[in-house]
Design a protein around this nucleic acid. Structure first.
Length: 417
RNA sequence: GUGGGUGUAGCUCAAUAGGUUAGAGCACUGGGUUGUGGCCCCAGAGGUCGUCGGUUCAAGUCCGAUCACUCACCCCA
């Protein structure tokens, strides 16, 4: 019989790996909650329309990467390809703007995109998603990027750079788009086929084309940053001022464009050069029109997402892993001692001590080997001899010393080690 | 969706120009005198050589197909 494999691009996270995830998750919660963010959990499945309207009909995500299907009653649903649209939907649906003028929310969980997997890119991947609603002030933009930096520092990640840009508002971006299209048209002949297509569909995207002759053309192309409107320009200036105030290093990257339609003004990405082709560990930006696009009130928002597998891949390259092991091992010989050891194990656990034992009646030598593999600091040895005397031998694995301890004192004595 | 690379034990890899019972290291199990770990020594278990088909007296090895994994393109976290 053929064994069943996991779905392509969807991974099991095994013991030994899962410790990294726990570390990232707990650190994320600590930092985010310290900045006033509260967790929200939304369904993994949403109406398809939420994403086609929210992310943009012509984006790659919506066009070709979504897990979309018709359910038994003919309703079109999709596994979420990102979290922002869902969080905004929940925000609108539950009228969260009525509670406070500002809402700071975060969500952890799996996202789904049907792409060809490669290093740092999977069909089920996980994000730490952060969103703040109701405030358009640049102070919040800067605080968010500062918080991202604090988180990455706390988790111990090094070698990443924060890129920032302003994408302007729908109005000035539209004007720029027309100008850029005009420019590209005059250089049409030199552009690669992809860029010729992008000229119509999404001219801004030509900026991250990797073909050399396209880059050459784009060097002289009008930059969005140079032509954003006055209010967008001052917003960006103030973001930068606050970044300096918070002593958070950044790099202005006028070529950065983001793949989702809803971004406005501030956009940012955390970039690494240690992940092969996947260079973005996290990214986000402001999305002032999104809530309204999704049928809600006209409320500004800003947010970002961190790719957990990418972050963990980097951490694993940079840090030693810490394995989780029991602290005490019980080695017992003979039926009487084994039966007692079984109970004793539960008592030690009840006292809060991580305890493991041998369940198979193996030789003492074998049990000691097992204890050593676990890396426990102490082993309790229990045999006929000890049972007769009403004691257990406590062996210190590091020092090799051994002492006898009365059985009735055990949980207490172990706690004081 | 497109292109490249790789599929042999749980893991990392060997296997002469096709030729008998496919090997090693690590990991695993047991043992090295009565009930004591690490180091060392001995022994053991573990593989339909991804799958299907073809060439051949003979295929892990050659050919084809297929699947899986992987890297890259596209795009993104």
């Amino acid at each position: 019989m053929e064994s069943i494999q996991a779905v392509k691009g969807m991974n099991d996270i095994l013991p030994g790996q899962v410790e990294w995830w726990q570390k990232v998750e707990t650190t994320a919660r600590e930092v985010l909650e310290n900045f006033g963010y509260r967790e929200i959990r939304t369904p993994v499945l949403e109406k398809l329309e939420l994403f086609s309207r929210g992310i943009g009909e012509s984006t790659d995500i919506v066009e070709k990467e979504m897990y979309a299907f018709e359910d038994r009653r003919g309703e079109w649903l999709a596994l979420r390809p990102e979290a922002t649209a869902s969080v905004v939907r929940a925000y609108i649906q539950h009228n969260l703007q009525a509670d406070f003028t500002m809402q700071k929310l975060y969500a952890l969980g799996p996202m789904f995109r049907r792409e060809r997997p490669q290093k740092g890119r999977y069909r089920q991947f996980h994000q730490i998603d952060v969103e703040a609603f109701g405030v358009d002030d640049p102070m919040l933009d800067a605080e968010m990027m500062y918080m991202l930096r604090v988180f990455l520092e706390r988790i111990g990640l090094s070698g990443v750079v924060l890129h920032i840009n302003s994408l302007g508002c729908p109005q000035c971006r539209q004007e720029h788009k027309v100008r850029l299209q005009g420019y590209l048209e005059t250089h049409q002949e030199t552009l690669c086929p992809d860029c010729r297509k992008r000229r119509h569909t999404n001219p801004l995207r030509t900026f991250d084309c990797k073909v050399e002759r396209c880059q050459k053309v784009l060097e002289k192309a009008p930059h969005l940053l140079g032509s954003i409107c006055e209010p967008c320009g001052t917003h960006f200036e103030r973001v930068k001022d606050h970044m300096e105030q918070l002593r958070t290093p950044y790099l202005i990257n006028p070529r950065m464009v983001r793949g989702l339609d809803y971004y406005t003004r501030t956009a940012f990405e955390v970039i690494t050069d240690q992940l092969g082709a996947q260079n973005a560990v996290g990214g986000g930006g402001r999305y002032n029109g999104l809530a309204q696009d999704l049928g809600g009130p006209d409320i500004p928002g800003i947010g970002f997402a961190i790719g957990m597998e990418r972050l963990i891949l980097l951490l694993q390259q940079q840090q030693e892993e810490a394995r989780r092991m029991p602290k005490i091992f019980l080695a017992a010989m003979g039926e009487r001692a084994r039966t007692h050891a079984f109970l004793l194990t539960q008592e030690l656990r009840a006292a809060g001590l991580e305890t493991e034992m041998d369940y198979e009646g193996k030789s003492l030598k074998s049990q000691m080997r097992r204890a050593d593999k676990y890396g426990v600091s102490h082993v309790l040895i229990l045999g006929e001899e000890e049972m007769d005397k009403g004691v257990a031998k406590l062996r210190n694995m590091a020092g090799k010393s051994q002492q006898e301890i009365p059985l009735e004192d055990l949980p207490a004595a172990m706690k004081n080690l």
